[in-house]
């Protein structure tokens, strides 16, 4: 019974994250292409994607290494780009913090933007899920995404061909994220959080090392929390 429901949640996770295949495939292939062009061999390129498993941070590191930036700067910049992962981790903690340590470590390694948003939107929508069900669902969400990240890094490194610009696949990422977050706007507080985050993100884009994203994210979270409090005080049920 228990195993059956876990399998069921695992399957649901696979289905929920499958739209992101369209995002991951070109992004991974592009990393493979660029890494090869930067002179990395096959083992180095694959190790990069498997060990780091973070698209934007990998592109940042690759770019800075090609510019001969000092190693410390390369690391700090790429980690700053990945700083949002710490916020994802905090956001997951109330939902999977009670899972065994090895499962939390596995989920941590597998947390990327796409798997995070698939996981958190389901955890929020179905608060009565048990911890094993949440982990099963998350691992399901990872299944069509992460292996393809590895495989298409390899394909990109081997093929070395660029994806034609006319396919406009650059915009697969914004479309997939917008589609994924739209159903998460359940209360006015969610809407305020997003509007403030967007409003801050544009001027904050001038900040170096993608720090504007963190500033905008924190501003949005504070706005959401304050709106929630304000609505509570006015007796509006959330």
């Amino acid at each position: 019974m228990n195993i059956t429901t876990r399998k069921n949640y695992y399957r649901q996770g696979i289905i929920a994250s499958s739209p992101f295949i369209l995002v991951v495939v070109p992004f991974a292939a592009l990393f493979g292409v660029l890494a090869t062009e930067a002179g990395l061999d096959l083992v180095e390129t694959m190790a990069f994607s498997i060990v780091v498993i973070a698209g934007a941070a990998q592109f940042t590191a690759l770019q800075l290494m090609q510019e001969n930036a000092p190693t410390a700067i390369v690391l700090l910049s790429a980690l700053a780009v990945n700083l949002r992962m710490a916020m994802y981790s905090a956001s997951f903690t109330p939902y999977i913090g009670a899972a065994p340590l090895w499962q939390r470590a596995l989920c941590a390694y597998l947390t990327i933007d796409q798997t995070y948003v698939v996981g958190i939107s389901r955890f929020e929508a179905e608060p009565q899920m048990s911890v094993p069900q949440r982990v099963a669902f998350f691992l399901g969400a990872v299944t069509p995404i992460v292996p393809l990240w590895y495989i298409f890094t390899l394909v990109g490194a081997l093929a070395g061909a660029r994806i034609p610009e006319s396919w406009a696949l650059d915009f697969a990422i914004p479309i997939a994220f917008l589609a994924m977050i739209a159903p998460m706007f359940r209360t006015p507080a969610h809407l305020v959080a997003a509007l403030v985050a967007v409003g801050v993100s544009l001027p904050a884009a001038i900040l170096p090392y993608s720090l504007g994203l963190i500033v905008a994210g924190i501003a949005g979270m504070m706005a959401g929390a304050q709106t929630e409090l304000w609505l509570e005080r006015r007796g509006v049920a959330i």
């Binding site: 905090a90 994220f177 994203l213």
Partner: peptide, 17 residues
């Protein structure tokens, strides 16, 4: 605050793009 992580960070990630 954490309840608003996803709806703040992801739109902020996408908006400049």
């Amino acid at each position: 605050h954490l309840r608003y992580t996803a709806v703040a960070i992801l739109p902020a990630l996408v908006a400049p793009q």
